[in-house]
Design a protein around this nucleic acid. Structure first.
Lengths: 330, 330
DNA sequence: CTGAAAGCGCTTACAG
DNA sequence: CTGAAAGCGCTTACAG
């Protein structure tokens, strides 16, 4: 079932069929011709062969999106933004998890070979193996990183500002001993920096970054470490949502009442946060917009245009106040 | 940068280059020849063109996996199983969310056209639009559904047994008024059936399925409905993990102590369950094995072999006892 | 053991 | 307005 069969059935040439398939004006053909071709396609159940098309056009109309943990719920809106914007560019998204990007893996090899994708979006680049990063650097197709990056064009939400917003909120509630918990990589460093700036600006002493990693256990570990300090904190900024879950659990196990004895603010917001008890006050990040902007910037790169990267400031991160933080009762 | 360039540089023919790229024995060539070709490839930075290869072989070495909600954490092990098994077949996985599968969407169109994938794995087929299902039915490539299905070959974990295990555990703890909450589609019907069988087998009256849907809110709604019954339940089987979160939240808000006044068992197990308070007793499903078995069955189909579908019984669903269920105190 | 040639299904200059 | 032909980069029968 190829264009050749359709052409034969409709009594036209290959070129005409291709034109109606693509809506190209190879020709401004007669309506009757187009109708005849359409009918033949319908009747024969013609489906274009993407592979042949891609080979000929040297373009696949697929882009890859590599996420650090695809099942992190904060990526839901990101994915939506990316899929929508990609569709507007006529492209499909090949979604991958960074954990499938080991050197020599089928996925990476495929991604690096020609004729697979027109460009690559990566979130969590900082967490890839060095050899994978090296291989990516020599990739001929454009790569855009969805976080602050050194070696590639990048675009990101305002992680620093998010750390600052969370911290300032706690300071305004009267807290003085605030600690920053969890996270790995550049993103969490930025958020910690925001925390630090807010503390500095208020003349408070920033605590060292309790960099216990990612996930629930990281949050629990972070809280335990924090509570061992000479003067225990009265408030805590948690670097990611899963760690917030762990903080709540550890606080429960240690008999620390939230928010009465300890206020908690999380960075990133998802449904889960409002269904935990207490519901978690969190900084919402414009992930949907990041997705859209990322695709646009990538297509600038693909088209050879200069790409408008940098930090997304509209909308800004936004505090969603719930029940896990309260005024310091000192 | 094509095989032609490599051939020229190494002073051999195209066929030889192709043979060394693919490890084919087009020829049992001299070691020195192979070495020369390899070196030329290295030096020129040759990357094979997948598109040309796929066109020629009429096979893309990509399979699609459509998930109902990609960010559902229960799919983590499923994905791992699928990616690993796919890699063993030399294939890459194109991951998609069912919500990008609307009729006319870029993703679906792409998937349905030729030369995109060699086969499709779907989880959540029951939740697709009817027109999408119709389009899939006429797809020329094999489709395997990772749940009980009518129109396609399928393979699944033992959802019925999971419902039964959860329910029987509660019965053995002395509970008599047990209710089944949440879920949509065929999967949850199977689990409810398991619940019903366990109740029947013990001479208890099964309550109607409180089919409030998927997610946290569904769990909260389900619990509220359940508590309005003439005789309130003392135990509850929750159809999915996110709904379990909602059940805990609603119980907290209603002042219902878990497990003292209400025992909760969830179906499916993920890290989150052990980090909630109380930690949730749950039935672990062999999702990794489902992923592997799904790929194997799909490749049977692709090869034209009869596919070994049906319910995976080894391993069986397994109860993980934590803190959310306890003996009925009468 | 190696090479020359056909052809996968498309798109697009080129010629009419 | 339409058609015939070249060629995208590969794999693989076929011939030597």
């Amino acid at each position: 079932m190829t264009q050749r069969d359709v052409a034969r059935a409709a009594g036209v040439s290959l070129a005409v069929v291709s034109a109606v398939v693509n809506g190209t004006s190879h020709t401004r053909m007669k309506e009757s011709t187009r109708a005849r071709v359409l009918e033949a396609m319908q009747q024969l159940g013609y489906q274009p062969n993407q592979t042949a098309r891609s080979l000929r056009r040297n373009r696949t109309d697929m882009i890859a999106m590599i996420l650090n943990k695809v099942d992190n719920p904060v990526y839901g809106p990101l994915r939506r933004g990316v899929y929508e914007a990609a569709a507007e560019h006529g492209a499909t998204v090949l979604l991958g998890d960074a954990d499938t990007m080991r050197s020599g893996s089928r996925f990476l090899t495929r991604l690096l070979s020609q004729g697979t994708v027109d460009g690559i979006l990566i979130r969590g680049e900082g967490l890839l193996d060095d050899d994978v990063k090296a291989e990516l650097r020599s990739h001929p197709k454009p790569i855009l990183v969805l976080e602050h990056a050194l070696d590639h064009p990048w675009i990101d939400v305002d992680d620093l500002r998010a750390g600052e917003i969370a911290t300032r909120f706690l300071i305004n509630l009267g807290h003085r001993h605030i600690v920053f918990v969890g996270g790995t990589g550049y993103l969490s460093q930025q958020r910690y920096l925001g925390y630090k700036q807010a503390m500095d600006a208020s003349g408070l002493a920033p605590a060292p970054h309790l960099d216990t990693g990612f996930g629930e256990q990281a949050g629990a570990d972070g809280l335990r470490q924090a509570m061992q300090a000479a003067t225990a904190p009265t408030a805590i900024v948690v670097n990611n949502i899963m760690s917030a879950v762990g903080v709540l659990a550890a606080a429960h196990d240690l008999g620390i009442a939230i928010p009465d004895r300890l206020s908690v603010v999380g960075i990133h917001d998802v449904d889960l946060m409002q269904h935990l008890r207490p519901a978690v006050t969190a900084v919402r990040m414009p992930m949907y917009q990041l997705g859209r902007a990322g695709v646009e910037a990538l297509y600038d790169l693909i088209a050879g245009r200069p790409s408008a990267g940098g930090v997304i400031t509209d909308p800004e991160p936004e505090l969603v106040i719930r029940d896990s933080a309260t005024r310091f009762a000192g």
